[in-house]
């Protein structure tokens, strides 16, 4: 009886964690929904000509690429391929950092052309800022993951930590996929 309960418990623990994480994403989605609605409510489809479109595209590509490496890290971890797992986590962290550098460059230009006190600047800095904060927390989590992985914490049968952080990283990417067109591309 007790053993059966334990096995059942271990199985439903994973399911429970997944459900909780997805609900967290749902909640977070409303944060981005509120920001996106604010953008259209206040500024309509306006976008300043000084917006660095090429840089926007480049950092979008980098973030999507980092999603791929994160995906590969998770698959590797699921198959107990620790070497590939660590390598891909490192890739992901680096790509995340490059993304942040891109944001910093953008912000420097932004301060010049549309400072945060202006209508578009308000939205631009808030939306990219909130998103960059998520990227930053994601990078911290990935770093912890890397060191935990190096100390042999995860096995092919037990890698919820990897799965959770990687899902979070994908979610940050999803948020960007929605923010990027609303901020840069609508006209």
């Amino acid at each position: 009886m007790a053993l059966a309960k334990e096995i059942h418990g271990a199985y439903s623990r994973l399911h429970t964690n997944r459900l909780g994480l997805w609900l967290f994403f749902l909640s977070e989605l409303f944060i981005f929904a509120a920001l996106i609605s604010s953008r259209f409510y206040l500024q309509g489809f306006y976008r300043p000509a000084e917006l660095n479109q090429l840089l926007g595209l480049v950092i979008s590509v980098i973030l999507v690429l980092s999603s791929l490496t994160a995906y590969r890290a998770e698959i590797a971890s699921a198959h107990g391929d620790q070497r590939r797992f660590r390598l891909n986590i490192l890739f992901t962290i680096s790509l995340g950092l490059i993304f942040l550098i891109g944001v910093v460059i953008e912000w420097r230009e932004g301060f010049h052309f549309f400072p945060p006190s202006t209508g578009f600047g308000t939205l631009f800095f808030t939306m990219t800022g909130v998103h960059a904060f998520h990227v930053l927390t994601g990078i911290i989590a990935l770093t912890i993951l890397y060191f935990l992985g190096r100390s042999g914490r995860f096995t092919s049968g037990s890698y919820w930590g990897v799965e959770g952080v990687v899902k979070y990283w994908h979610f940050v990417d999803v948020a960007w996929v929605l923010i990027y067109p609303t901020l840069y591309l609508v006209s």
């Binding site: 409510y41 206040l42 006190s117 209508g119 578009f120 308000t122 800095f125 808030t126």
Partner: peptide, 13 residues
């Protein structure tokens, strides 16, 4: 941070 979400003179509402 000095943003203008609600500052009507800067395009807020």
């Amino acid at each position: 941070a000095g943003t203008s979400f609600f500052n009507a003179s800067q395009g807020g509402n």
